[in-house]
């Protein structure tokens, strides 16, 4: 019995290991590039390790004194603390808003009855199907007319009130949860908002935490809109600052080592968030599992 169980399990673990390695290998290569001398990037591109690792690339993208001279195609150093602060504000505002407003709408779409509900819901899904290329010019003009260029308000405006993805996701979860508890609460005279806030939402802690993580990563990587609307340093987010290291000229190489060093630095805050939130998810799942 036990051997019969162990073989599939072994395969399972082997599969997980393979997926893990494939996930991490390119990220390791990015990290390896970040600790390579700029002149050695291409001669060491086909190996997993670099013989004389250097940490100067991290220093130089931060504008600190470094033993690695910036290559000729390098961008100007990033003001890391300011970009970090801006990214935290941007991501925090955006994700908080998205979670609240989207879950509210998702709840209504899943549980409340009102004329035109399904039509409105499908128009939310349809909103993901319009290529964003045609959206951003009218949106840019609107934000400019509102005087919100170079402000966090302008940067979060288009997506803070709703994200079709989040509305759709939460609706599916509300739909697949039994509603007896909520009905009982309604009979006890609780308002719809209180039912949503105190009963329905806490039941979705797991999905909400998952969504929070995914939306945060997404917001952290948002590039094009924050780039158009928030160019000034006091609102410039990390992803926009990173672009400095990509393509300086039409022809020629990006500053590989600088870019990868900056990327590695920029994902550290997200990693912290992930591990912190990840633990919270596990906890919330365990408590909800015990009920």
């Amino acid at each position: 019995m036990s051997t019969k169980l162990n073989l599939p399990k072994l395969f399972g673990y082997a599969g997980l290991a393979v997926f893990g390695i494939i996930s991490l290998l390119p990220i390791w290569m990015a990290l390896k590039t970040a600790i390579t001398m700029p002149t050695d990037v291409f001669s060491t591109a086909n190996s997993l390790w670099v013989n004389n690792p250097v940490f100067g690339n991290f220093l130089r993208v931060l504008g600190l004194p470094s033993d690695v001279p910036p290559p000729a195609n390098s961008g100007s150093p990033i003001n890391f603390m300011i970009a970090l602060r801006n990214s935290v504000i941007y991501t925090g505002l955006l994700v908080t808003g998205q979670l609240f407003f989207s879950s509210l709408a998702a709840y209504a779409f899943a549980r409340l009855r009102f004329p035109g509900r399904d039509a409105i819901f499908y128009s939310f899904i349809a909103a993901t199907m319009i290529p964003s290329i045609v959206l951003f010019i009218p949106n840019f003009i609107l934000i400019r007319q509102l005087g919100l260029l170079n402000s966090f308000a302008g940067m979060v405006a288009p997506n803070i009130l709703m994200l079709p993805f989040a509305v759709f996701f939460l609706r599916q979860f509300f739909l697949s949860t039994p509603k007896e508890l909520e009905e009982a609460a309604r009979l006890d005279g609780l308002s719809w908002f209180k039912v949503y806030w105190h009963i329905a939402l806490p039941l979705q802690r797991g999905p909400l935490a998952t969504l929070a993580i995914l939306l945060s990563i997404q917001a952290w990587n948002d590039f094009f809109w924050p780039f158009l609307v928030g160019q000034k340093e006091n609102v410039q987010v990390m992803a926009v600052a990173l672009a400095n290291y990509q393509s300086q000229t039409g022809q020629g190489q990006p500053d590989w080592t600088g870019l990868m060093a900056a990327v590695m630095l920029s994902i550290i805050p997200v990693l912290i968030l992930l591990v912190f939130f990840g633990r919270r998810i596990v906890e919330s799942l365990q408590t909800s599992g015990m009920k």
């Binding site: 407003f101 989207s102 509210l104 709408a105 709840y107 209504a108 779409f109 409340l112 409105i120 128009s123 939310f124 909103a127 319009i130 045609v134 959206l135 951003f136 010019i137 009218p138 949106n139 609107l142 405006a157 288009p158 997506n159 803070i160 009130l161 709703m162 079709p164 509305v167 719809w192 949503y196």
Partner: peptide, 18 residues
């Protein structure tokens, strides 16, 4: 009321540009 904020976002930043 529940969908109002989301609807405002949909109309202003998706429907209108579309």
């Amino acid at each position: 009321l529940f969908i109002l904020p989301a609807l405002i976002g949909l109309i202003a930043f998706f429907a209108f540009p579309t």
